Simulated scan of single mutants.
Amino acid sequence: MTSFKRISDAGNLTGKVALVRVDFNVPMENGLVTDDTRLRAAVATVQTLRTQGAKVALLSHFGRPKGERVAEMSLAPIAGAFAKVLGANVSFVADCKGEHVKKAIADLQPAGVILLENTRFCKGEEKGDLELARQIAALGDIFVNDAFSAAHRRHVTTAVLAEIMPAYAGINMEEELSALDKALGRPERPVMAIVGGAKVSSKIDLLKHLVTKVDALAIGGGMANTFLFARGHSVGKSLCERDLVDTAREIEAIAKASGCDIILPRDVVVAKEFKAHAAHRVCGLDEVADDEMILDAGPQSVAILATAMDVAKTVVWNGPLGAFELEPFDKATVSAAKAAAARTKAGKLIAVAGGGDTVAAMHHAGVADDLTFISTAGGAFLEWMEGKPLPGVDALRS
């Protein structure tokens, strides 16, 4: 993290305008925010800037309007929702550039907060257009990026502004980068990765990269079936990408050459129907009937994972181990998550989890507050795990 400037490096901000990139792309229903996690994540940065006397102008995208003004994708309703979370007034202006926006910001009192309109209403945002960047930059004195979740895109407000303005990492961004550095950048070893999810095809780059970085890789979910099939086990009518058998074997070969231990299920939970509370049984890998599908890892597999966690100093987790949204096929994910949480709380493990279903799975297991860090970044978290450059992060480097 030493290569990133923080807000504390910005000096005296009294009367200055801070353009802050947040991620307010939140779920909404009937004009109301249904999950304010990302709004709450922005509070620390906004309050820090306000305390230092800065005016705060918030930049965010919402949905995919593709450069057009789409009424349903306006950020206007979110201004009120964020005001409640922040405990302070948040005004709104229906654009993100131009003299009228500049005036609206000028009219703010010191420590005032204003939310600008959806940045993706501007055609040049997703293209990283330099002229648009200059127009937005003219609104402020410094740029603060607090949206790691959007850092995998080189858009105007995620990267280009940082290239043409004094730029700093927000507190949420700083915490994310610090946690990720502990997880894979400069981790305490041994390092164990847990990767689940439905398909190998969606995580080929991730798996190939991880086996060169970690000491052990546990594979679960539907993608484990492809690896089991590649090893010659029957998987019945389970989700299985049979055309990726060679890819699975290639990943195992890279892992062997890199000294990474691949951990696959030793027993499985099978059912004939994909539905909650379907009749099910636990069986060995060579006992799956042709009309059965693997929906979860079995108790022996979870015990092996727990033992591997006892050896590890760091765990990075992405993806559930089974069909966790359907009881009772959530047992492996819940049990493994609780095992990781217990070791983390005991100070024996650094556990970082993130990406899509993983966040939901950790909340479902009731351990979201017990792990070292949970990233809500989704695509950016995955691309970071894959070892790919993140333009929004790279642009912040000193």
Rank of each mutant, 00 (worst) to 15 (best):
253 A>K: 15
253 A>M: 14
254 I>Y: 04
256 K>T: 14
256 K>G: 10
257 A>L: 13
257 A>H: 10
257 A>E: 14
258 S>I: 04
259 G>Q: 14
261 D>C: 03
261 D>V: 00
262 I>W: 01
262 I>L: 06
264 L>C: 03
266 R>Y: 05
269 V>K: 09
271 A>M: 06
272 K>T: 14
279 A>E: 13
280 H>I: 00
282 V>R: 13
284 G>A: 13
285 L>H: 05
285 L>W: 01
286 D>S: 14
286 D>C: 02
286 D>N: 14
287 E>S: 14
289 A>T: 04
291 D>L: 13
292 E>H: 01
293 M>V: 08
296 D>F: 01
297 A>I: 02
298 G>F: 07
301 S>V: 00
304 I>Q: 09
311 V>Q: 13
312 A>S: 15
313 K>L: 09
314 T>P: 14
315 V>S: 04
316 V>Y: 08
316 V>W: 12
319 G>I: 08
320 P>S: 09
321 L>Y: 03
324 F>H: 07
325 E>P: 03
326 L>K: 02
328 P>N: 10
329 F>K: 01
330 D>A: 13
333 T>C: 03
333 T>M: 02
335 S>F: 00
336 A>T: 15
337 A>P: 06
337 A>S: 15
337 A>H: 12
338 K>R: 11
339 A>T: 06
341 A>C: 06
344 T>Y: 08
344 T>L: 06
347 G>C: 10
351 A>M: 01
352 V>R: 05
354 G>Q: 06
355 G>K: 04
356 G>S: 05
356 G>P: 00
358 T>G: 05
361 A>W: 12
362 M>V: 06
362 M>R: 02
364 H>N: 06
365 A>T: 08
371 L>V: 12
374 I>W: 05
375 S>E: 10
375 S>F: 10
375 S>K: 14
376 T>W: 12
376 T>P: 02
379 G>R: 02
